[in-house]
Each structure stands twice: as structure tokens, then as C-alpha cells.
Amino acid sequence: MHSVTLFALAAPLAALALPSGSLLTRQELQSINELFVAKGKEYFGTCSDQNLLSNQQNAAIIQTAFGAVTPENSMKWDQIQPTQGQFNWDGPDFLMDWAETNGKIVRGHTLVWHSQLAGWVNSVTDPAALTEVIQTHIAEVMGRYKGRIYHWDVVNEMWNEDGTMRDSVFSQVLGEDFVRIAFEAARAADPDAKLYINDYNLDTADSPKTQAMINNVNKWVEAGVPIDGIGTQAHLTGGMGSGVAGAVAALAGANVAEVAITELDIAGAAAEDYVAAVDACVQEPKCVGVSVWGVRDTDSWRADTSPLLFDDSYQPKDAYTQLIASLS
């Protein structure tokens, strides 16, 4: 893990070589990551990829304020192995090199997911063949970055809202055994990486989806499936922040070593929602980190809801200011 310097919690953005005339050059931005780590946590991160890391203003904010990066798209199956046996490493390599140059943790995202899946995978109907496809994909991707990626979202978004298993090529051909296959392949590929199962709408403790996650993870871990953590994405709407604490505590009650908030964004970005959501991780001993899903609203997948901590002009919003105050 990275060491924490408690006495250097602010850095003048003027020193980060931002473009002349940028509003940010006239402000001082504090590191939310350093304050969060000082609370005993491991990282406060965001997502990015080559196009945004090549944007000087965006990169400067991540350098100063955040401690981890998750590839937003470049490690998803349709990007990294669009054709069977042909891997595209350009985007992931760029992100890895940038992160290591700038001292950032990397969360790998994501290995087995029904969405943004290369079309050829959906045509695999034989269980033995699909097992090999999963194992090969994980071995190649995780193997390339072995020892360099801290967390991996191994299985992503496998639950329906009613707690049933989502229909996908993986569940159709292999049933729930695809989970065991994926996690065992991941453990073999990088024994030191923390292996996560990740999903959205795990935002209330008693929802069918949350309970399905907890009950099935307990079952799999008891059977020896190497699941280290549960990730709750936390794509929230306004007013939902107060419910995150109960949900995180419930997930932490599962038979896993740790949990994390992996893709936090909140429609409207109300300060009280962000403070409550982040505090949910601060207060839960098993919660190791928070990642917000982007830097500025313009670049968010939910741009029309203004869900992030920085506005379209890269200015920190009230939610960021209040998070700094809360963590301080």
C-alpha cells in the first residue's frame, strides 16, 4: 500500500501544469484520498481510461485528489478480446503505466460480465468450451498484469432485481458454476489479487438482490470458491445516501474478508448523500475503499443527472467540499 503523508493534504493545482487560464489554477484542491486513508482505509479512487488520462485537467485532478483508478471500459471483454485469441492491450497498458507512474492503485474491471461482451462469446454453447474460454481470458488478462492490480471485479452484475440469477451465456451454458470457474481461474492467475463479485442496486440491506448476493456468496465461500470481497456499485439517486450504511453493513456480514463501494455516483450530487455514502465505508471495518465513477459530470455515463464531485468546468462541487470537511 502507499504511505500516507498526513501533513500535505493540499496541493496547489497551479503546480500541476494545468492550461493557462483554467479556473482550477486559481484554486487549491485537497486530496480526498489522503484524508480517507488517514481514516484507516486503503484508497479513494475514480474510473478513467486513456482518453481522459490524456486530458491534462482531468489527469491533474486524479493525480492530486484520488488514490486509485479503475478502467472504465478498456478491460471489458469487448475491448480487450474482441476476437477470440486476439487481445488489445493498448488502452489497458496506457492506464497501467499512467497509474504506476503516478503512484495509484489499480482496480481491474471486469472479467466475466454479460454486457459489453465480445459477440463471439455468446456463440459458445458447449460447457467444456465455454469453461476454457473463461479460463483462457482470465489467465491472459490477469496474467499480463499479475502483481500490479490490487482488486479484480471477477464476476460483475449476475443478479436480477428479484434475486434470481441473470440470464447470460454464462448462466445458460454453465449454470451458477461459472462463478466457481471464474474465481478459481482468477486465483490461479494472480494469487495475491483481491477477488471481488460486483453488482449494482445493492443499496438497501433487505432487498432480494442484496440478500441473494449475501446468501450465495456465503454458500460459495463455504464450498471453497475464493471470493475475497463484495463490491457495491452504488449508482444512487438523490436521497439514497442515508441507506448505504445499512446495505454496506449487511454485505460486510457475508463470509468475505472485505467490501468496497466501487462505482459511486449520485444523481444531483447532494452533499448530504455523498457524505452519508462515504461515511458508510468509514464506519464499516470491512470496507476498504470507495471509487466514484468519474471525475466531472460531462464525462459521466449519467451526465444528464450531474452525479459527480466536479462540474463540467472541473470545479469541485459542494459535495466534494463537504466530503473534505467530513473526513477532516
Rank of each mutant, 00 (worst) to 15 (best):
F183E: 07
F87Q: 04
V217P: 12
Q84G: 02
L6W: 05
G289S: 07
E184F: 01
A118F: 10
S115I: 11
G143Q: 09
G103F: 08
S300C: 09
G294H: 00
F170Q: 07
Y274K: 00
I230S: 03
G119T: 14
C281N: 02
L111A: 03
V288T: 15
T64E: 01
A182K: 00
Q79N: 15
T321W: 12
C47M: 02
Q30W: 10
P12G: 10
T164N: 08
A14S: 15
V179A: 00
I227P: 07
P316H: 04
A271F: 09
L35E: 06
N51V: 11
L202I: 07
A277W: 00
L23N: 14
Q135I: 11
D93R: 06
W159P: 14
D279C: 08
N58R: 10
R302I: 14
G147E: 06
P208D: 06
G147I: 10
A260I: 14
T232L: 12
D190S: 04
D203G: 00
G268K: 06
S54E: 11
F87C: 04
A193N: 10
R26K: 15
A118C: 14
S22W: 01
A277G: 04
E132R: 15
T125R: 14
S326F: 10
C287Y: 07
G231Y: 04
A249H: 01
G238N: 13
D199N: 04
V155M: 01
R296M: 13
A250T: 06
L308I: 07
G45P: 07
I32T: 10
S31C: 05
E222V: 14
S48R: 01
M240G: 02
K146F: 04
Q211I: 03
V290G: 02
F310P: 11
H2E: 11
D299S: 14
W120H: 11
L236Q: 04
T46L: 02
T237F: 12
D153N: 01
R180E: 15
G108Y: 09
A249C: 00
R107N: 09
V124S: 08
R302M: 15
W98G: 14
M142S: 11
F44D: 12
W152Y: 14
G108D: 10
Q315P: 06
Q63K: 12
R302S: 15
W152S: 13
F170S: 03
Y150A: 05
M1R: 07
D206S: 15
Q30K: 12
Q283D: 08
E100Q: 15
E72G: 03
Q315L: 15
I324Q: 08
T237M: 12
W152Q: 11
S313M: 13
E100Y: 13
V37D: 03
D299Q: 13
G246V: 04
A14L: 13
V282H: 07
